[in-house]
Design a protein around this nucleic acid. Structure first.
Length: 576
RNA sequence: CGGAGCGUAGCGCAGCCUGGUAGCGCGCUUGGUUUGGGACCAAGAUGUCGGAGGUUCGAAUCCUCUCGCUCCGACCA
């Protein structure tokens, strides 16, 4: 491709609307343009990256035995009513009517459609297992689209759905997808973790998220520094060395703590560590229960763990008045002694003795408190947020490291939730109708490209890994008006094209500075500068975008060298 | 949906408080000089000041309403 005939509108300045680096760079590098909130056009340069990503996904899905199909964006309401999601999905489901006033929605995901296809086409267990996928534009009318392609309303997603007769088969299908996902993200050259995740509203037995590691990631994850265990902090399990049962040695005693409301205040005032304090949170659940939650002073509550434990949809910190009513004191002085509401404690609290708690009265705390003696806890459980340094629950030897991650893929074992609701059954060997056991597997295509940029950039611009780069080689022609230089660049360009190397020839009539700045911005992995100065010596200049390494290479050798570097950049080893 | 902020030329912004001829930088066009890290000189073009209504002799500026966008929360690939 010739730059002079291409559409690659780079921006010198950062558009004000872009907050995160990937969004800024994708706009500046002419990859995307916004059409409306959370809705983008993919310009030619950006589309090339997207297509690369799609192709990698396609190849690995196919390798794993999945079959590509394509389902419609417009879905009739009936299917969604049948699964019950027409009502449940809420405003995120973009609904509209056709000319006959029939209800439709834009597909935010395709469990209904695929289940409908399978129930109408598959009747026997002999046709199983099946795994169908598509790469398609989804629409979710997000409350708050943001960060460019990272969280759009319209976005391209690869979604796959597996169907098995039995649970064990579904586990195998899930494992295949897990491995396919690892292959996909390995091939992209991304630093990521596959983590155990909360299966959330979609339900199902287990679930993994694939997280590209990046500072700006929206999720917290932890991974063990010595074994393979990794998990979303929402889910990360914790263990406690409870070898030494705590022994109470102190008497309970009220102390005045005027104005000391926060843990830090109390710790400083009483000259104790936050680790010797137990904080009492008053929370409300979706079932309208108010309860007290106990945590070590320096810990954070993990509301998802608590909600799962209680079997409720959500828990929230209680309003000021509710706290007042439950404890008889304003916030900051809540404690477990004498409460009439249920008390749930983090498992860690069980290992503590002689701790400080709130006194349920203004400016009063209690020291020397002990559970079981001074108050009762109805349940001890793992309900706190995992942090770096916590011991690994699997190998019990390693410690957690913590990261920020961008969720680019998520795999779920769904079970029979949709197949039962939609009556998707096959006959087993005994002639009995059995609901299909399903799994679903998503990858955000645009988000992965954005995440790759988030992870690979410097102050000058994008540094895309070779497998996702829109072009593999950029030939910068410095003096288009110098016939000799022009001919040398043209020849190189032609040779690379003949070798099927994806090359962009910057033949614009621009000054060198502009070409170099643009080159760094758009981040093509390999740049060859053809200019009068080095050509005199029979050389061209090779610059590797990632390392910044510059070498002079003779005109005769450059093609072979580029060929090797491209091949190297695309090389990958399949796991298993 | 709750809270905060912003809409002025293609992009980045000033002007608004204290009403009176719409500006700056970049980009764009033309000519010339330049040509290895976002050149210089000269001459240009470009705006319903997001929209509607109001106050006023007069509104980008003050008031009301509206639409859009961005950020913080719940959600998610």
């Amino acid at each position: 491709m010739r730059y002079s005939q291409y559409l690659l509108p780079t921006l010198k300045e950062t558009p004000a609307e872009a907050e995160v680096i990937s969004h800024q760079l994708m706009l500046r590098a002419g990859m995307i343009r916004k059409v409306a909130a959370g809705i983008y056009s993919y310009l030619p340069f950006g589309l090339r990256s997207l297509r690369k990503m799609e192709q990698i996904i396609r190849e690995e899905m196919n390798r794993a035995g999945a079959i590509e199909c394509l389902m419609p964006m417009a879905n009739p309401a009936e299917l969604w009513q049948e699964s019950g999601r027409w009502e449940k999905y809420g405003k995120e489901l973009l609904r509209f009517k056709d000319r006959k006033s029939a209800d439709f929605c834009m597909g935010p995901t395709h469990e209904e459609v695929i289940t409908d296809i399978i129930r109408n086409t598959v009747n026997s267990y002999k046709q199983l297992p099946l795994n169908l996928y598509q790469i398609q534009t989804k629409f979710r009318d997000e409350i708050r689209p943001r960060f460019g392609l990272m969280r759009g309303r319209e976005f391209i997603m690869k979604d796959a759905y597996s169907f098995d007769l039995e649970d064990s088969g579904a586990d195998t299908s899930y494992q295949k997808m897990y491995q396919a996902y690892r292959n996909i993200f390995n091939r992209c050259g991304l630093k990521y973790r596959s983590v155990e995740a909360d299966s959330g509203a979609i339900g199902g037995n287990f679930s993994h998220e694939f997280m590209v590691l990046a500072e700006s990631g929206e999720d917290g994850i932890v991974s063990c520094d010595s074994c393979e265990y990794a998990a979303n902090v929402e889910k990360a399990e914790l263990i406690y060395a409870d070898s030494v049962p705590p022994v109470a040695t102190q008497e309970v005693q009220k102390v005045d703590t005027p104005g000391q409301k926060t843990i830090e205040d109390v710790a400083r005032f009483l000259q104790v560590n936050p680790q010797q304090i137990v904080k009492t949170l008053i929370v409300q659940t979706s079932n309208d229960e108010v309860l007290a939650v106990l945590l070590r002073g320096d810990r954070e509550l993990n509301p998802i763990k608590l909600a799962n434990l209680l079997g409720v949809d959500w828990v929230l910190m209680a309003e000021e008045e509710v706290v007042q009513e439950a404890t008889g004191a304003p916030t900051g002085f809540a404690g477990p002694i004498g409460l009439s509401i249920r008390v749930v404690a983090d498992a860690e609290v069980k290992t503590m003795a002689d701790f400080v708690i709130g006194g349920n009265a203004v400016d009063v705390h209690v020291v020397g408190a002990n559970h079981g003696r001074d108050f009762e806890v109805s349940q001890f459980a793992d309900i706190r947020q995992a942090v770096a340094g916590d011991p690994c629950p699997r190998c019990k030897e390693g410690k957690f490291e913590s990261w920020r991650g961008i969720e680019v893929g998520h795999i779920f074992k769904l079970g029979i939730r949709y197949s039962e609701a939609m009556n998707a059954t096959v006959l087993d060997a005994q002639g009995q109708a059995q609901p299909l056991v399903m799994g679903c597997y998503g990858i955000g295509v645009g988000r992965t490209v954005a995440a790759a940029i988030e992870q690979n950039h410097d102050e000058n611009g994008i540094i895309l890994p070779m497998p996702l780069a829109p072009f593999q080689v950029l030939v910068t022609l410095l003096n288009p008006k110098d016939d000799q230089v022009r001919e040398a660049a043209e020849k190189l360009y032609q040779q690379l094209l003949d070798l099927n190397i994806e090359v962009l020839l910057d033949d614009r009539d621009e000054r060198p500075g502009i070409k170099f700045k643009d080159a760094d911005l758009i981040g093509i992995p390999l740049r060859v500068t053809v200019g009068a100065r080095s050509l005199k010596e029979g050389n061209v200049e090779l610059k590797v975008r990632e390392s910044g390494a510059v070498t002079m290479v003779s005109v005769d050798e450059i093609v072979v060298q580029l060929q090797q570097l491209v091949a190297q950049g695309l090389a990958f080893t399949l796991e298993k």
